[in-house]
Design a binder for these strands. Structure first.
Lengths: 238, 238
DNA sequence: CGTACGGTTGACCCTAGTCAACTATAGTGG
DNA sequence: CCACTATAGTTGACTAGGGTCAACCGTACG
C-alpha cells in the first residue's frame, strides 16, 4: 500500500519505519467500471477502501429518487475509514469513472495503529479533513451563490489533485459529466450547465469535456471566497 | 470530566478503568454568555473543548457578512477535537445560549489515548459521527424540501438531546432564535418563519418560543426522510 | 450511418430571498 | 403601574434564482 505513504505524507513527515509498516499492509486490489459500487450502503465492511485511480463519490439516495453526492474522492483518499468505527455504512461509495481500489482489512489497520500511534493519528486526520471539506460544502450550499459554489469546488479539486500530482499549471482532467456534478453541487442538471457558462464568461475557468483549466486561480478563489486552510495540505507535526 | 464518560458511553461500553482515566482528566471550566466565542477562528488551540451546558454552533463568516452554521453542539459534545489534529481552526465555535464548557489540554488527551487505544478510538468516533451529521446536512441542503430539511434537523436534535437526557416524550427546550436557525439551515430568516408555520400546519410539530414538541415523531421522520442510523446512537464494540 | 451519451437552449413556473412594516413579549427605569 | 426599549416573531408585496419540461445539437463509437 505505497499509495498510503504518499497520501499520508501530504500532511506530516512519515519516517522509514512507518513507511515500512504501511508498505507492508496486506490488501486486495479491485478494478471497477464507472457506476459500480466500491462500498454498499447498509453494509458492514471489515476492510476499508483506498482509491488508487479514478474518481469516486459518496452518495445518498433518497426515497423519491433524488441523489446527493456528499463527497468526491480522488486517488490516495481513504474512502470509508469511517466504517472502521461506524460499523454500518449510512451511504454508499460509487465509481464516477473507471477506478482501481485497494481494500485493507480493518484488523491490519488496527495493528498498524497499535504499533504506531502517530500513524493512527494520521489516519484519524484523514477522516477529520474529510469533515472539514464537508463543512466547506455546507457553507457553499447554504450561503454562496451558484457561481461561487461551483468555483469553490473547482478550487478545492484543483488543490487536492495537484497535491497528489494529478494537476498542474491550473489544468486537470475531470471526466465527470454535468449530471453527477449536479448531484454533488445540489443543483439541477440545467443549472449546472448555465452556471458553468457563467463561469466561462468570467474568463476565470475553461471546461471542455473533461479538460478543466483554471485561467486565474487567485481570481477564481476571490470570487468563490476560497481559503485553502481547511484542506490542511501543509506538512506539520500532528 | 465525568461528562465525557457519559457521552462516550452512548456508543460503546466504557469499563471502570477507562472511566477512571476520563474522570481523572484535568480541565478548566468556563462560563460563557450567549454570543461569546468558545474557540476562535484561526486560533491554534492547545486544549479541546467539551460543552457541559447550553447550545453552541460552529460558524463560518463570509466576507460579504453572510454566516453559515455548520454544526450545532449540545452538552456532552466535544466541539473542537479536530483542532487536536488540524492544528489551525478553519472556523469558530460560538455560544448560542449561555453555556458552560470544559477545556481539556491536548497533552492529557494524548496520554489517555496512549493508555487506552480503545478510548482513542471512541474519541475518533466522536469526530466521525460529526462527519456523518454533516453529510446529512449536505443532503438536506441539496436535495430536501425546506420543510423536510427543517423537519430532519428537528428529528436529529431530538434524538441527540434525548440520548443525553435533555429531551423526552417528544419535547425539548431549544432557546435558539429563528435568526440562528436560518444560518444553520441556510435559509433566510423570513423563510425559516414560514417553513416553521408549514411544519406547524402539518400537525407534526409544535414550536412556541423555546419549547419544541414533536407531536408525531414517525410522521415527521417519514416526511423528512429521516433515518437515525447515521447518528450511531447504538452501544456496540468499536 | 445510426445510436447513445453528454451538452445546450428556451419557455415557464415555483421556491425562496429581500425589503419593509408591524406585532408580541419581556425587561427596565421613572 | 406605565411608558420605553430591545428582542423575537410575523406578515405582505415584490423579485430573483433556480427547477422542470422538452426539444435540440455535437460527437464518439459500433
Amino acid at each position: 500500500m505505497h499509495a498510503l505513504v504518499t497520501s499520508l505524507s501530504l500532511r506530516d513527515e512519515i519516517d522509514l519505519e512507518e513507511a515500512a509498516l504501511l508498505d507492508g499492509l496486506s490488501f486486495r486490489r479491485r478494478q471497477l467500471r464507472k457506476g459500480e459500487e466500491l462500498v454498499a450502503q447498509h453494509s458492514r465492511p471489515t476492510e476499508s477502501c483506498v482509491v488508487l485511480s479514478g474518481v469516486t463519490a459518496r452518495e445518498v439516495l433518497l426515497d423519491d429518487g433524488k441523489r446527493q453526492i456528499t463527497a468526491l474522492h480522488i486517488p490516495g483518499d481513504f474512502v470509508d475509514l469511517h466504517a472502521f468505527l461506524l460499523k454500518v455504512m449510512d451511504h454508499s461509495v460509487v465509481a464516477l469513472t473507471d477506478c482501481e481500489a485497494a481494500y485493507v482489512p480493518h484488523r491490519d489497520l488496527l495493528r498498524v495503529m497499535e504499533r504506531s500511534p502517530h500513524l493512527g493519528r494520521l489516519l484519524w486526520l484523514s477522516t477529520v479533513v474529510d469533515g472539514a471539506i464537508q463543512r466547506a460544502w455546507i457553507t457553499s450550499a447554504g450561503r454562496r451563490s451558484a457561481t461561487a459554489h461551483f468555483g469553490h469546488l473547482i478550487c478545492e479539486l484543483y488543490l487536492r489533485l495537484e497535491a497528489v500530482g494529478l494537476a498542474s499549471e491550473g489544468r486537470f482532467e475531470f471526466p465527470v459529466p454535468q449530471n453527477e456534478l449536479a448531484d454533488a453541487l445540489g443543483f439541477s442538471l440545467v443549472h449546472v450547465n448555465r452556471t458553468l457558462q457563467d463561469l466561462r464568461a468570467t474568463g476565470l475557468v475553461s471546461w471542455k469535456g473533461s479538460a478543466v483549466s483554471i485561467l486565474d486561480f487567485d481570481g477564481l478563489a476571490r470570487m468563490s471566497q476560497f481559503d485553502p486552510t481547511y484542506l490542511n495540505l501543509i506538512r506539520m507535526p500532528r
